[in-house]
Structures are given as structure tokens and as C-alpha cells.
């Protein structure tokens, strides 16, 4: 039995193949979803400072990323957190996985008065070293 597509109409000679269009549209949708997500992350607006030195190795272990915006808002791995709960949360995470690298993504224009208490809280949580995230200077 011959199969017939609803869209293709061989008899009339007009044949619209919608497969490429659907493919492209779906990929565009995924693209915009991802870009939207990136934009939301960037909305947390962390403009990194630049540096000419640094390491760019990626460790096997997923790092704990602490975000500090210019206005002092805090986040751990992208989730906003209140400064009162910060120490307890980071201490818990560090205790569960002691070797996990800690990365500090702080805004370049954040006053050090905002960053210092975080560093002190990390030290109080028995963390002896952090990695400061910067943008590679071209």
C-alpha cells in the first residue's frame, strides 16, 4: 500500500518539505531558551575583573561558585542566598565535600567592604584558599 503524506501533494506537483523548517525552528527555540537563561544569569550582573595571569584548569570536582554582585547580593552556585545563612550553608557544603574548590565570582566594582566579610566567613568555615574568577585580559 502506498503511503501518502498529508503535506506533500505529488499529484499537483507542489511539494513543500517542512522538515528543514521544523528542524531550524526547534533549534532556534532551544537557542533562545539557552540565551535567555544566560541573560538571566548575567542579569545577576557580575562584571568580572580582568587579569593577565591565572590558571584555567578545570578540576574533576565541580566547584562551589560564590557570586557577589556590586550591590552585595550573594549566591551559591547561582542560587541567591541571604548573608545570614551563608556561613552555615558553605560550611555544610564544605563538610560534605572537603576537597571541593571554592571559586569567588565577585563584581569588579564591588567595594571590598562587601567582599571581605565573605572571605572572613569562608575562613571561619575552615576554608584556607579560594580561586578568584577573573576574565582573561586579551
Amino acid at each position: 500500500m502506498r503511503t501518502r503524506s498529508i503535506i506533500s501533494n505529488e499529484g499537483s506537483g507542489a511539494r513543500i518539505n517542512v522538515t528543514p523548517m521544523i528542524d531550524v525552528v526547534m533549534v532556534l527555540i532551544v537557542f533562545y531558551l539557552l540565551v535567555g537563561q544566560l541573560a538571566i544569569d548575567r542579569k545577576a550582573s557580575i562584571d568580572l575583573p580582568s587579569s593577565s595571569t591565572g590558571i584555567n584548569q578545570t578540576q574533576e570536582q565541580d566547584p562551589i561558585i560564590i557570586g557577589i554582585t556590586a550591590d552585595g547580593s550573594l549566591s551559591i552556585n547561582g542560587n541567591a542566598i541571604d548573608s545570614n545563612r551563608f556561613t552555615g550553608e558553605i560550611e555544610g557544603m564544605h563538610t560534605r565535600a572537603p576537597g571541593t574548590p571554592i571559586r569567588v565570582r565577585a563584581d569588579r566594582d564591588a567595594p571590598f567592604g562587601v567582599v571581605r566579610p565573605i572571605m572572613h566567613q569562608l575562613r571561619d568555615a575552615n576554608i584556607r584558599g579560594v580561586e578568584l574568577v577573573t576574565e582573561q585580559r586579551p
Binding site: 568580572l48 587579569s51 595571569t53 591565572g54 590558571i55 584555567n56 584548569q57 571559586r103 572571605m119 569562608l122 575562613r123 576554608i127 584556607r128 584558599g129 579560594v130 580561586e131 578568584l132 574568577v133 577573573t134 576574565e135 582573561q136
Partner: peptide, 9 residues
């Protein structure tokens, strides 16, 4: 491209 600067606490 991101770099990481190590700092002791």
C-alpha cells in the same frame, strides 16, 4: 575566557 587566581585565606 575565565581565569582563576588562587588566594590564601
Amino acid at each position: 575566557h575565565e581565569w582563576f587566581l588562587r588566594a590564601d585565606l
